[in-house]
Design a protein around this nucleic acid. Structure first.
Length: 273
DNA sequence: AGTGCGACCCGAACGC
DNA sequence: TGCGTTCGGGTCGCAC
């Protein structure tokens, strides 16, 4: 499930493939991937635009065109494929951009959960989805005071609150578990019971865990590959997520699995308080 | 306003 | 073996 480190990895691998190319054609095979504007309009507007930049904002890929930003969310299994213009469309290829070198740049998503928006550049920061996003994990403004202020009145579990993209953008289910383990905090603790000092720990560990994951090219579990043939290595570094019935690497206690806010959650009942 | 939950999807894993 | 059922994952939008 692409979270921030995986999205950064995808963007890195896309840069030398699509940057400065012009979009000469667009085909949409599953309309629901296109969140806005409607598919027909999306297609008409994007043709003729040049790809000037590629970046990330939260878990969104932000592709800077001439007049628009193309925003792409991979959700669980979205990935990109490069094919020749006339190659057969695969079962899970839902959107196709023809580039001016006759390469077909395709969005592949088994679950069809991915989303794309085409938004006027000047509106990008003020309309959904980017307007709803909180701070990046590396943002200097992400301080313990910021986090404490955002969460100290919330009764939801800390795990759930860290998944809230309007507070810190980019943490998903996997890194959430890892950050809370590193911080020694039970995922079920109410956010309002988390202290200022613990907020500092959470931020520090978020930076350590996500930076390391970025260095290793993200986590490859299930079907995530950043782009064709690109595999991350961070799955080897996971300490608790997906480790139910294995031993805690710190104390040897069996790792527990529960559901928190509907999400599979892994933790050590001895190390996390 | 804050919170909870169904919808969106379909392959894999599971149960019988 | 083969069938039917459940699960998971991020985000949106609706209901309370």
């Amino acid at each position: 499930m692409p979270e921030k480190p995986e999205v950064i990895t995808v963007v890195r691998s896309l840069k030398n493939k699509i940057l400065s190319k012009r979009i000469t054609g667009c085909n949409i095979y599953w309309d629901n991937i296109i969140a806005a504007p409607v598919a027909k309009e999306f297609k008409e507007k994007i043709i003729g635009e040049t790809i000037n930049s590629i970046d990330t904002r939260g878990k969104w890929i932000t592709i800077g065109l001439d007049k628009y930003y193309l925003l792409i969310h991979l959700r669980m299994e979205g990935k990109f494929m490069f094919r020749n213009k006339d190659d057969t469309i695969g079962k899970h290829e839902h959107v196709e951009f023809i580039l001016d070198d006759n390469i077909s740049f395709r969005f592949h998503d088994v679950r069809k959960f991915g989303k794309m928006y085409l938004i006027l550049k000047e509106e990008a920061e003020t309309v959904k989805p980017l307007s709803e996003l909180g701070l990046e994990y590396y943002d200097k403004n992400l301080t313990k005071e910021y986090l404490y202020d955002k969460i100290h009145s919330k009764k939801l579990p800390i795990k759930t609150v860290l998944l809230d993209q309007s507070i810190i953008a980019g943490i998903g289910n996997i890194y959430d578990d890892e950050v809370l383990f590193a911080s020694g905090i039970l995922p079920t603790r109410k956010a309002c019971d988390v202290t200022l000092l613990e907020c500092e720990d959470i931020i520090k560990n978020t930076r350590i865990v996500l930076d390391k994951a970025v260095k290793l090219g993200g986590t490859t579990i299930k079907s995530f590959t950043s782009s064709e043939g690109v595999h991350g290595l961070f799955q080897n570094e996971l300490l608790v997520h997906g480790k139910s019935n294995e031993n805690c690497p710190k104390c040897g206690t069996t790792i527990s699995k529960i559901r928190v806010g509907g999400r599979g959650t892994y933790y050590c009942s001895s190390c996390q308080k």
